[in-house]
Amino acid sequence: MKKLLYSFLILSSATLFAQKKLAVADNTIGTVDLFNAKKSLMQVSKVYNSAASLPAALKKYSSVFTNGVTEYKFKNGHNVLDIMTLAEINKQHGIAEDNLVFIDGHEFKDSATKIFPEIVAKSEKKDYNGKMTYYIYTTK
Rank of each mutant, 00 (worst) to 15 (best):
A23W: 01
L54D: 07
S12I: 09
D82A: 11
D82R: 05
T138N: 10
F74G: 03
V101S: 08
D127A: 11
K114A: 15
N90Q: 09
D110H: 06
K60I: 05
G130F: 02
N49Q: 04
K59I: 05
K39N: 12
M84N: 04
L22S: 06
L16P: 00
I10R: 13
H93S: 04
K114R: 15
K114S: 14
I29G: 09
E97C: 02
Q92R: 12
K75F: 00
I115C: 14
M42G: 03
Y61W: 03
I29F: 07
L9G: 06
V80Q: 15
N27V: 06
P117E: 11
E88Y: 04
G130N: 05
S123C: 04
F65D: 09
A96T: 14
I95G: 08
N49K: 07
S7R: 13
F35K: 05
E71G: 01
F17A: 13
Y6T: 10
I119N: 09
Q92I: 02
V101R: 09
H106M: 11
K38T: 08
T15K: 15
L16F: 13
A56Y: 01
G68C: 05
L5Q: 11
Q19T: 13
L16W: 08
I29W: 04
S45V: 00
V44M: 03
M84V: 04
A18H: 11
D33P: 00
D104E: 14
M84K: 09
M42E: 05
F108T: 05
D82M: 07
K60N: 07
P55I: 08
F102M: 09
K122F: 09
L100R: 12
S7E: 08
A25V: 10
S123Y: 06
A57R: 07
G94K: 13
D26K: 13
S45C: 02
K75A: 01
K2A: 11
S62Q: 14
K2R: 14
A112Y: 02
E88K: 13
V101M: 08
I115G: 13
K46F: 03
G130E: 03
S13R: 08
K126I: 08
M132S: 14
S62V: 02
E107A: 15
K91Y: 04
T113Y: 10
I10F: 12
A25S: 12
K3G: 15
D33E: 07
K131C: 02
E97Y: 06
T28H: 01
L86F: 01
G94E: 11
L81C: 10
T139S: 15
N49M: 06
S53R: 02
E97I: 03
K114Y: 10
Y72L: 10
I136E: 01
K131I: 00
K131W: 01
K122I: 01
K75M: 00
L54K: 10
F74P: 00
S7Y: 07
S50M: 04
K126H: 09
L16N: 08
D82L: 08
Y135L: 10
P117S: 11
A18I: 10
T15Y: 15
K2N: 10
G68T: 03
L5S: 08
Y135F: 14
M84R: 07
A51H: 03
F102R: 12
K59E: 13
I83L: 06
Y135W: 05
E88N: 12
S63P: 00
L41K: 08
Q43M: 13
K122T: 00
E88S: 13
K21Y: 06
L9D: 08
